[in-house]
Amino acid sequence: MNVTGFLAQLFAIALALFLAPLLTGWVNMCRAWLQNRTAPPLLQQYYMLHKLFNKDVVLAHGASSLFRTAPFIVFGCMVLACAIVPTLSTDLPFAPAADTIALVGVFGLARIFISLAAMDVGTSFGTLGGRREMLVGFLAEPALLMVIFTTALISQSTSVATIVETLARREFAVYPSLAFAGVAFTFVSLAENARVPVDNPATHLELTMIHEAMILEYSGRHLALIEWASSLKLYAYSCLGLALFFPWGVAAGDSFPALVASIPALLFKLTIGGATLAAIETVNAKMRIFRAPEFLGTAFLLAVLGLLVRLLLETRV
């Protein structure tokens, strides 16, 4: 790998680290507008991160070394995910480090660590959150893999970069299967990012929370890292979705002009995507936890249908 490529990669990661809290802030703003509230400033997430980093870490007596390591590992996983997903360019040196299947694995690794950390202190809400997170995880993962299979069948590849290349740079074609997969992906990413029909990022009501229940015991820099990591996760998922279903505007090379030129397209897509997410969250109500299997089951079904439709309609010669 050459130096330019490496620098381009670092630039993409730095941009992800910078943009992720902004995206979360933007979604929160849109949500506030749609709900007729006064919106928090766009930079609210940065203020919060700064404040949290400044605070002391208050650890519970029962917290072990795992509890203190987990936020860093989760953060590392999300950085890796953002490095793999082609946000700016399809030709970055870390892109072949993992294909889409391995990307699912990265999210899985982060999930396991955060769930274990939630169980570490041994409180009632912590274990509850850990269990529910794993529940959502094992329902979402197969659906996500099926979505990936559908896109992989179209492009004959599971590498994200190749998928984007194939979808963005070939002549226009209508893929009904991709529509199915797109809807399924939306469902999955709502669940995976602890968004409204499945979880509510704004709640601290004991019985309804999933993600928040897991991180109750965290404070200070650990909490800051976890919050940053969840922003990064949202960013990575959004970029993955955009890459799979709206692949236009991603640069092909790793030269800086090309990278910089693709930033406006990314910003534009993320702005629209964030507003859509806020709209979805506003018009839906949170489901009971045991409706989540049905919700994600539907996503799985859609993805499988997409796969079958792909095999029936689009592969015949």
Binding site: P176, S177, F180, L313, E314
Partner: peptide, 8 residues
Amino acid sequence: QFINLFAS
């Protein structure tokens, strides 16, 4: 392709 889309 469009007919396929409608059928789907």
